[in-house]
Design a protein around this nucleic acid. Structure first.
Lengths: 202, 202
DNA sequence: CCTAACTTGTCAGTCACTGACAAGCCCATC
DNA sequence: GATGGGCTTGTCAGTGACTGACAAGTTAGG
C-alpha cells in the first residue's frame, strides 16, 4: 500500500491536464479574445477532443473562473488571521491587502485578467456571481466580529451585508483601477471607496 | 400630418408584441422553469417563429431581465427626488422604499421573480450585472451629495462605491427575504443590513 | 496475465443564436 | 387604385456550446 500521501496518481495527472488546458486557453483568450476562441480550438491546441475538454471543465467560462475560486479562499484565510481587536470593516479592508500588494508588485497580470473578464459580458456577469461565493465564505467570519453580536445567527443579514459591501468596494476599486489602466493606485482607490462607505474605520 | 403625439404606430405594436412575449414566456418559466423552457416553445405559444422571437429580444435572458431595467430608472428617480439635506446613505435607503413597499403590498410577485432568477444560474449572474447599470445611474446622483465634495469627479471611486454598497445591501436583504419565503420583513432586513454597513445614518 | 476501473474519441442530438434571402404587408404618393 | 419603398415575417442553413451513449484503448492491481 502506498498510503494516501499522494492523492492518487490519476488525480494528479488530471490536475496537470487541467492546468495545461487553462494555460493554453488563457493564451488564446489573450491573443484573440474570449468570444472569438472556440472550445474546439482550445481542445485542439492541447491535442484532445472537444468532448474531453468538457470532461475537465463544466463550461468554457469555467476555465477562466477557476482563477477566481482560489482568491475567495485566500480572502477568507486572511480575514480569519486578523486580530480580534480589529473592527470588522478594518479587518475586511486588511484582508484585501494581499490583492493590493499583488497589484503593486506586478500590475500586468491583474490588469489582463480584469480586461479579459470585462470584455466578455458572460464573464463579467459570472465573475460577479462568483463573488457571492466569496461573500458566503466571508460572512461567517464577519459574524464573529459583530459589534452588537448576532442573536439569531441564521437570519441576521448583517454579516452578509458587510461582506457584500466590502466586496462591492473592491469591485469598484478594481474597475476604476482597470479604467485608469493601472495608472492610479489600487490601494488608494480601495481606501477611498471603503472609507466613503463606512467612515471611521482604519 | 398626424404630429408626433403617438410615437409611431409601428413602435406601439412592436411594444405590444414584446409585452405579449414577455407575458407568455413568464407563464412558461413559472410553470416549468427557465431552463426547461425553450425559445421555440415561447415563440410557438404566441404563434411566431423562433427567428422572430430574436427580433424582439436579443436573448432568452433578456425576456426576464427587461423587468429589471425599469427598476434601475425608478431608483434613480427616487434618489433624485430626495431632499438635499439628507445624507447620502439615508437618501439611498429611502430610494429603496418603493421596492420595500411593493414587497409589503403584495409579496407574491416579488418572491416569484426572485425565485425564478435565483434558480437559473445564468439569470442569477445576469441580474448582478444588471445592477452595475443601476449603479451607473445612481453614482452621479450620489456624487452631488458627497460630504467632502469630489474634486476629480471622474476618478473618484466614492460615488460608485456608495451606490454599489447600497445595492449590495439590497441584494443581501432580498436574498434573506427570499430565503425566509417572505416571512421576514424586507424593510427590517434592509434596515439592519444598511445600518450595519454604514452606522449612524437614518 | 487478466480483469475491472478509468479515459478517450466519435457520433448524434439539443438548444441558443445569426446571417441571408424571399414573400407578404402597410402606407404614402402619383 | 396602381405602384414602389419600407418593414415584418418565415424559412433555411450554419455555428458554437454542451450532453448522452457507446465502443476502443489504457492502466492498475491481483
Amino acid at each position: 500500500m502506498v498510503s494516501a500521501e499522494k492523492p492518487d496518481l490519476r488525480e494528479r495527472t488530471r490536475q496537470a491536464v487541467r492546468a495545461q488546458l487553462m494555460a493554453v486557453a488563457w493564451d488564446l483568450f489573450v491573443e484573440q479574445g474570449y468570444d472569438a476562441t472556440t472550445v474546439d480550438e482550445i481542445a485542439a491546441a492541447v491535442g484532445m477532443s472537444q468532448r474531453s475538454f468538457f470532461r475537465y471543465f463544466g463550461s468554457k467560462e469555467d476555465v477562466v473562473l477557476v482563477k477566481f475560486e482560489a482568491v475567495g479562499v485566500m480572502l477568507a484565510d486572511e480575514l480569519a488571521r486578523r486580530p480580534v481587536s480589529e473592527d470588522v470593516w478594518t479587518a475586511l479592508r486588511r484582508s484585501f491587502d494581499g490583492i493590493v500588494e499583488t497589484s503593486e508588485r506586478d500590475p500586468r497580470y491583474g490588469l489582463l485578467v480584469l480586461r479579459i473578464t470585462d470584455r466578455a459580458p458572460v464573464l463579467r456577469a459570472r465573475r460577479l456571481e462568483q463573488q457571492t461565493h466569496w461573500q458566503e465564505l466571508l460572512a461567517p467570519l464577519v459574524a464573529t466580529r459583530l459589534d452588537p453580536p448576532a442573536t439569531d445567527a441564521d437570519h441576521d443579514p448583517r454579516p452578509a451585508a458587510l461582506a457584500a459591501a466590502a466586496l462591492a468596494c473592491l469591485n469598484v476599486a478594481n474597475a476604476a483601477w482597470l479604467d485608469s489602466d493601472g495608472t492610479e493606485s489600487l490601494r488608494r482607490l480601495l481606501d477611498d471607496a471603503m472609507r466613503a462607505v463606512h467612515p471611521g474605520a482604519f
